[in-house]
Write a protein that binds this DNA or RNA. Structure first.
Lengths: 351, 351
DNA sequence: GCAAAGGTTGACAGCGCTGTCAGTAAGCGA
DNA sequence: TCGCTTACTGACAGCGCTGTCAACCTTTGC
């Protein structure tokens, strides 16, 4: 019945000086198993015993030891996240949503990064996470197709934004519908009278960059147009700037850019070349970063909902972890075209 | 001597079906303690025994169980990160550097977020991390001053970008030198002839926002100038836009903005009002986000090195974790003024 | 009033690993 | 050759917790 401060008791015997289940049990006058029941909210404990235990827990400042618990239950309730190390908006924006979704579901998030999606780096990251006992892995914003043939990840629940080369039932893809996104951008430009529509892609080794390019190309084909010039950047504003410098108004009157930051760089480059946006060149971005709406020329862009992707990813992963097989193995979330001021009617091609 | 594939052996007895130390020991014909020695790279194992054990480890695909290890060694080698949930550039940019620095030092990173830095939310986050057994905590981009009086964090190694109200020797502050940053911005504007210099601050409940404002005010005082208008935003481009809408050219010829994204919003607002940047209004940002250099009007800004802050934070934290007291409890890393095109001489005030 | 059923509690083993310490083999000087 | 040091190896306990199972204590129905 000792209700004194946190550091009160002197009987606790844990190595670290932290109180253990047994200390709480002694304090409350019950067995440690009963304390365990209370702490884990199990049924069949008399209310007054429960209350007394709770009081002792508070009095001693008891916290369960995750390692001990994990050891016996074989559950860590940890999710691993593998992300590409970059300070780019896209991959990071969903991070907090990811964490919050995991938190709500009672899971912790262990973060790890790779510089590039080489098999070696990915393998190292996976090893790192598995040693730490994660129960599932989310791979976010990693280039290319994941090859997990005989790898150690083959049997681990995994959600990725990139396709994976396994038939494992434990692998699910969750991502924005990139193809539909650039398709919508192209259609919008077409409807505005543009016929010469270029694309500034992300690094095409990245699956999402390739899919955005595919959308652009497919929509042009459906529209009966020849694809305009295809440029490639590395997602950075600088690369957008440099790529756009090489593009001529004779080659295209509009360009679909694979992300907003490259679009900003491109707009800067066009401006330098004396082209006015949108009158001389229409530009569509992708992502809808917060500052896109507040550029001097507010950016028309394809919004993707990073939060939804993150939440859905966590949801699907936890389904897999808890043994429920995935209903769909390939989930594409909708994107939305946000028309602002960087696109205009093309009067050169007045249809 | 079985060198077959990972899933080979059928003798492993772990609940999860994963091989344990004892399985490797049996496979190699040694005791589990010897395997433990090899796995942990301890001395005093005969080379050929070591080699044999290593072969068995590889053959069985053995991975040490972190929970068991943590239980007995009382070390988790995990660092907790508390960040504010937002998709803003500042707080997230250093995240990957943080992770990489932790990785190199052999630590894992567990991420958690708070919506706001209320005592309640922070307490919850801390509890979450402590239950997961982190050995130290980094608090990044959290508003205000941390009050950790009798809190459970009081005795835990902690590195923060905000000041903390404890005398604990285990708490260190690592951050960019915000004051010097805005001071440099003001001086640059002064040297360009500006005398009416406004400030658009971040949310002043945030310590970093308050310090940036202080730098602005202090430099103006040192220069013998009265502070111009002080506005407040919430770091977002939108808030910068809205704040700038209220600012008149008669009130200021230049403005120091507390981050780049608000600066972009402000530039957009000024442009809408018919003010030309930089001729009618000079704008200085803070952060130097990647797209700042590629705006239609490239942004003059105060660059802070998020990577250095992150690396230093991890370094200091690990010092604390490993029991070495901090040499400095308050570390400010330098910032650098990057002059681009959003600032110009003020001809209205020709010195 | 008694048995059966159900609710509540605790003793004990053991999760997979490492620290301790004792024991055995090898090296070495006299 | 012996005795002593040093290099290696393994038996065993136990980290803090939960699962199992047996024991006990209430209720309830008749």
């Amino acid at each position: 019945m000792n209700d004194s401060a946190v550091e009160a008791s002197s009987k606790e015997t844990s190595k670290q000086g932290l109180p253990r289940l047994a200390d709480v049990a002694a304090h409350a006058g019950v067995s440690s198993k009963t304390v365990s029941r209370v702490v884990n909210n199990e049924a069949n404990v008399r209310p007054q015993v429960r209350a007394q235990v709770l009081r002792s827990v508070a009095a001693l400042g008891y916290r369960p030891n995750a390692a001990a618990r994990a050891l016996v239950t074989q559950r860590t309730h940890q999710i691993g996240l593998i992300a590409t190390a970059s300070s780019l908006y896209g991959p990071t924006a969903g991070l907090f949503s990811l964490e919050q979704a995991a938190w709500k579901a009672g899971y912790g998030l262990t973060l790890t990064t790779v510089q590039e999606a080489s098999e070696a780096q990915l393998g190292e990251a996976i090893h790192y996470l598995m040693v730490r006992g994660v129960e599932g892995v989310i791979v976010s914003g990693v280039a290319g197709v994941l090859h997990l043939g005989t790898s150690t990840l083959a049997d681990m629940p995994l959600v990725s934004t990139s396709p994976i080369t396994t038939e494992s039932a434990k692998h699910v893809l969750v991502d924005s519908d990139q193809v539909a996104g650039t398709r919508a951008a192209v259609r919008h430009l077409y409807n505005s009278g543009h016929r010469l529509i270029a694309h500034l892609a992300g690094p095409l080794g990245w699956d999402s960059a390739a899919r955005r390019r595919d959308g652009w190309r497919l929509e042009l084909e459906d529209l009966g147009l020849h694809p305009g010039p295809l440029l490639e950047g590395d997602w950075s504003p600088r690369s957008g700037y440099e790529a756009a410098l090489t593009l001529d108004r004779t080659a295209a009157t509009a360009i679909v850019v694979a992300n907003d930051h490259m679009a900003m760089g491109a707009i800067r480059a066009f401006t330098e070349k004396g082209l006015h946006i949108p009158d001389d060149m229409s530009v569509v971005g992708f992502d809808d970063v917060p500052e896109a709406a507040y550029q001097i020329v507010p950016l028309t862009t394809v919004r993707q909902d990073f939060s939804s992707v993150a939440e859905r990813s966590v949801h699907e992963l936890i389904q897999l972890i808890e043994g429920r097989p995935a209903e769909e193995t390939c989930i594409h979330l909708p994107t939305e075209l946000i028309v602002r001021a960087s696109t205009a009617r093309c009067f050169g091609n007045p249809n």
